[in-house]
Amino acid sequence: MSVIIILLAASISIALLFLVAFILSVKKGQYDDEKSPPVRMLFDDKPKHSNESPRSDA
């Protein structure tokens, strides 16, 4: 019986972690713009001939 209680506590706290992660990501505005992040990700993988110039990814 006690094993189940421990498992329960573990599972709910992991789920809680994800809930907190979700809420934080919403708060940071990750869902406000769904179009640019997937495109932006591709740019950095494509160093052409201009690597020496500094880029800001801030």
Partner: peptide, 20 residues
Amino acid sequence: LENLNRINKDILSSRVNFER
């Protein structure tokens, strides 16, 4: 638009919100 600092180094950074 996210590489504006290459045109003028005093533009420290720029970030686009595509949907807006």
